[in-house]
Design a protein around this nucleic acid. Structure first.
Lengths: 203, 203
DNA sequence: TCACATTATGAATGGATATTCATATATTAG
DNA sequence: CTAATATATGAATATCCATTCATAATGTGA
């Protein structure tokens, strides 16, 4: 695992300080983006002095990477936990899309922080999507073996499904278009499409 | 239309200068992102003095917005031109996905420049995707009326289809996963999915 | 209670860079 | 040809901001 040289706090109060810095950084990176957010903005918001941030994080970049990895870890855990409860591939797929959207709505900061990696450290961006895709592909391959999915290129399919989840999440988070509060309805439409296709006639 | 206060050049040589600045800015915003690209980087690359840039663009931000609007305009024109040649909705959909991917591959800068708007001017980002989605929805609504598509929420579907095109484009541009040079093959897989769904049994 | 380690402060530093402007050259219209 | 206009230069300016560091306060183990 990438060593970020973050110094974990040990005392009770210091742990609070650490978390306050994280919280403020997430809030401000989301609101204004990485570059427009200054160290002073973060430390002011957290109610600590500028130097305090450097007790824990050696640089602004490392703070950002730390948050990215945390989000990346959390969303995967969250989705996996919910998907694993399901039996059929259909239910897994439905739950996966739903979990993604719900996580995105609860943590709208995620989009900004993950996508912004494209402009901050392109390798982080690549790694994030590649490892997400790989895990997705694994699940799909298993389902093909079980005979639940048609024989289809699971590498391509994993990107198709990630694209769907991400853009539906985008729609919900940024309230683009209609009915963005009714997640169950939106998931129904998406699953209908994934199951039955877009066109009227099959073959 | 948003007035950016760009001063168009009139003489032959000045037009070249203007285009050189555009070209260098695209190249560098793509390569290093908006914030990491300095005015000096752009003007050095274009072979002009720093002050020259300000003859045409009142600020770095306006230069960026100008490029974003140009891309946004171009990709829509490009896709529309190709889609309009097709008769059936199936062929239109296939050609639309293929055109998007091919445009993205020929102009990989597009991704960076459009997505980065989320961190530079969030309204630009919203406007871009909302107007894209609206136009998409119109085409889908027409196809539903013609009886070519199933009765399905075209607002949601437009985001699903944009998500698919964008993430497949991402896969191809960033060479994530396999077979990224074989666009026809990838489009085949995507269309198979859109037509026949993911699962083995229907209903 | 006393040394030692950890945590906190915030003013000072140093480097970076968008933009301006005084000056110079090229182009065009009459 | 000549004024007027458009184009080009690049050093100087003024601001911004990540990081450091000398100093102080707080917590901890013996």
């Amino acid at each position: 695992m990438m060593d970020l040289n973050i110094k974990e706090p040990t005392t009770r109060n210091a742990k609070t300080t650490f978390q306050e810095i994280e919280k403020s950084a997430i809030k401000l990176f989301y609101k204004n983006g990485y570059h427009a957010t200054t160290i002073a903005d973060i430390t002011d918001d957290a109610g600590v002095a500028a130097g305090t941030l450097y007790l824990y994080f050696p640089s602004k970049l490392v703070l950002y990477k730390h948050l990215l990895l945390t989000f990346s870890h959390n969303i995967r855990r969250y989705i996996a936990a919910r998907v694993n409860k399901m039996e059929s591939r259909y239910d897994k797929e439905r739950e996966g899309v739903k979990a993604f959207i719900e996580y995105a709505r609860k943590n709208p900061e995620m989009y900004n922080i993950i996508w912004e990696s494209l402009y901050i450290d392109r390798d982080l961006f690549r790694d994030y999507y590649m490892s997400f895709a790989k895990r997705y592909k694994k699940g799909l391959d298993a389902a093909v073996k079980q005979g639940e999915l048609r024989e289809i290129d699971t590498d391509v399919v994993s990107f198709v499904l990630m694209g769907i989840a991400n853009f539906i999440g985008l729609k919900v988070v940024f309230k683009l278009g209609e009915r963005n509060d009714d997640i169950d309805y939106i998931v129904d439409v998406v699953m209908d499409l994934i199951k039955n296709g877009l066109f009227k006639e099959r073959e």
